[in-house]
């Protein structure tokens, strides 16, 4: 089990922790955070497995940078939307339409 694979497993773990939180939590902020955690998980997997026997493969790293910027913009929009939802519905959850 090379350290790269170990880090990859950590990434997978992050992904599923995020997924669990996304499913379980009600409030929108933890959900947005959960999505970020899942994103980081994927990026960790990408970077971890980039460590190759003959050195580090730069392409995943570039992909991760692109991924991070996309994640940032998505999170910015999500937060802004969450504020508007909280402002409009009084509660920062999606409960009013059957999220029990």
């Amino acid at each position: 089990m090379t350290p790269a694979q170990l880090y990859a497993l950590v990434g997978i773990g992050l992904f599923f922790v995020g997924l669990y939180a996304l499913g379980v939590r009600q409030h929108l902020l933890p959900r947005i955070l959960a999505l970020n955690i899942m994103g980081s998980g994927v990026f960790v997997v990408l970077v971890a497995l980039a460590r190759r026997s003959d050195g580090v493969d730069p392409v995943p790293h570039a992909m991760v940078i692109t991924g991070i910027v996309v994640a940032v913009s998505a999170t910015a929009l999500a937060l802004r939307l969450m504020l508007r939802v909280a402002h409009a519905t009084g509660s920062a959850t999606l409960t009013d339409t059957g999220d029990e």
Partner: peptide, 23 residues
């Protein structure tokens, strides 16, 4: 989710760590 995580983990471990042609 744990089952899926375990499955995915075993799959990731099978990915060959050999030299990457792209590098």
């Amino acid at each position: 989710l744990a089952v899926l995580a375990f499955g995915l983990a075993s799959v990731v471990l099978q990915i060959p760590g050999t030299g990457s042609a792209l590098r």
